[in-house]
């Protein structure tokens, strides 16, 4: 049950793009077509889950050594290395999957979702999702952290794919010249965010 609430919260209520503004660049950049959006979503979900797992363990080490201030540097290095490694491994063992996801992987290092979720997981207490007002909330444990990461990434995917669908339709409509491109996409995103606001208070 706890995990179900986590999913609903991460996908609808606290959607990472539409209410927390993380990963907006690729959200605007790769959302022109639904199939590229699908590829990007899959790649992001995979990398976010993996990166959260590794950085969660790394944080344990940092805390042990009392060098928490190295968090940003070490996290981003690990994420960059991880993305490269995934790319190399994928190329070797599954060329077809590499074909589908390959071009998105290098873009993911600078997708702030990966670093954002990694940092959120180790600093935010999980209990805010299902237990507002709890005393002395604890840090998430490992399974919770990974589920949270996957849920967040799926929330991102849902928003990205919905948005790509709308933008495909938008191509055919008559948009005033100055609004062409990014401005109309931003307005669309704004209306989408407005729609998602309807979910607030759900959990």
């Amino acid at each position: 049950m706890e995990y179900v609430i986590m999913f609903i919260s991460a996908i609808f209520v606290n959607n990472i793009v539409l209410s927390q503004f993380l990963g907006v660049c690729p959200f605007l950049g790769v959302s022109k077509r639904v199939d590229t959006a699908l590829g990007m979503s899959a790649a992001v979900t995979f990398v976010v889950a993996l990166a959260t797992l590794v950085t969660y363990l790394l944080q344990g080490l940092l805390v042990k050594l009392h060098i928490e201030f190295m968090q940003t540097v070490s996290f981003i290095l690990v994420i960059a290395g991880l993305v490269q490694m995934v790319e190399i491994i994928l190329k070797k063992i599954s060329p077809s999957l590499y074909q589908a996801l390959g071009i998105f992987l290098p873009l993911i290092t600078t997708n702030c979702i990966v670093l954002g979720v990694a940092i959120q997981v180790v600093t935010n207490e999980y209990s805010f999702i299902n237990n507002v007002g709890a005393a002395n909330p604890n840090m998430m444990n490992l399974p919770q952290a990974v589920v949270f990461a996957v849920a967040t990434a799926i929330g991102y995917s849902v928003a990205l794919i919905l948005f790509a669908g709308i933008r495909e339709q938008l191509e055919l409509s008559n948009v005033p010249k100055v609004f062409k491109g990014v401005p109309i996409a931003l307005i669309t995103a704004g209306i989408l965010a407005l729609a998602f606001m309807g979910f607030s208070g759900l959990v």
Binding site: F179, K180, G190, A193
Partner: peptide, 27 residues
Amino acid sequence: AFILAPGAFIALAYLMVIFRKVTGKKA
């Protein structure tokens, strides 16, 4: 709404349009 997410997107869109109009640039 302007403090929250939707307003952010929409305000930025209109600022971008104004910027384009003023500088006479296209995307």
